[in-house]
């Protein structure tokens, strides 16, 4: 290292703007995610499932050449509602907790960055990586549909992709809340898995039991069900493809008739609210967290 005279004329370094730091972290996150085994595994699994579901659902439809809101979408929906939240929650849960466990979090925070920038950067980067992962799966699935069915509606497919990406970002936010308060990845992943179970199965099954036992009225059932982001996602996809929720029986028809054109926006609103509020909660908790 070269030694020299005392340098006093060196201009003092200035920190980067928040946006630049967020982008730096996001790029690093995308890079780390893409080169990680987790990402490759998830992308592969999702692609295989998406293509498989498309193939299977098209198998029986050769004679008619018509697929309404048939099994393609229904099958994809089911698969998406299982896999995508799991992917996103796991990714989110591992994010901050992983840095903390490896001890890298401290080193990053010793740089001229704020905690919020780090959090947002990681969120953005993971979200982009997830979106890329989903795009590949859906792209292959769309290829199968184009080759085998042809007539399947591209606009509907695009809508499904858009909603799924929104779902992934929302679940990522929820995962980050878990991550921020967890010391270890294993704990964070466990809690994330629990949240997944709760959102995917427990809440719906509980609500079904409630509907039977307490004879919930349609409006009560619909409102409570809609608050679950996964149900909001499902209803959003169906209402966009069918222009109505009539597929979902009395409660769906009630919703379509009561809310009409505002219904899709309500459902998107529920998803956005989950995403924004979760991310805000993650931000606040991260700021307040004493131990790094």
């Amino acid at each position: 290292m070269s030694s020299g005279a005392v340098q006093t004329a060196v201009p003092l370094p200035r920190p980067c703007s928040a946006a630049r730091n967020v982008i730096s972290f996001a790029r690093r996150e995308v890079r780390d995610a893409v080169s990680s085994r987790w990402f490759v595994l998830c992308t592969g699994a999702f692609a295989v499932l998406a293509v498989g579901v498309s193939f299977m659902s098209l198998a029986g439809s050769g004679s008619s050449g018509f697929a309404g809101f048939g099994r393609t979408t229904a099958g994809l929906l089911n698969m998406i509602m299982l896999i995508v939240p799991l992917m996103a929650l796991a990714a989110g849960a591992g994010s901050i907790a992983g840095e903390r466990e490896r001890g890298t979090l401290l080193y990053l925070l010793a740089q001229p960055v704020s905690r919020l920038e780090l959090l947002l950067g990681k969120y953005l980067g993971l979200g982009i990586a997830l979106t890329g992962s989903l795009c590949i799966g859906f792209g292959l699935s769309a290829g199968v549909l184009a080759a085998k069915a042809g007539g399947a509606d591209a606009a509907a497919m695009l809508m499904l992709v858009a909603f799924t990406c929104l779902l992934a970002w929302v679940m990522l936010s929820v995962g980050m809340v878990v991550s921020v308060v967890s010391r270890k990845v294993a704990v964070a992943t466990g809690v994330g898995l629990f949240v997944w179970l709760a959102l995917v199965f427990v809440s719906d099954l509980g609500l079904m039991a409630g509907a039977i036992v307490f004879k919930l009225r349609v409006q009560e059932l619909f409102i409570v069900a809609m608050l679950n982001p996964l149900q909001a996602f499902k209803m959003g996809v169906i209402v966009q493809m069918n222009a109505s929720l009539d597929v979902l029986g009395p409660a769906g028809m009630y919703a379509s008739q009561t809310y009409g054109r505002t219904l899709p926006w309500m459902l998107v609103g529920v998803l956005l609210a989950w995403g924004v509020l979760s991310l805000a909660a993650a931000g606040v908790l991260f700021q307040r967290k004493k131990s790094i």
Binding site: R31, V34, G132, G139, A142, G143, A146, G150, A152
Partner: peptide, 22 residues
């Protein structure tokens, strides 16, 4: 078929871009 094909291509390109960013 073209529209679905275009969607397929678009999505794959988007995915590839993310990969390239990596």
């Amino acid at each position: 078929t073209g529209r679905m094909g275009a969607l397929c291509a678009g999505l794959l390109v988007a995915g590839a871009l993310v990969m390239l960013a990596g």
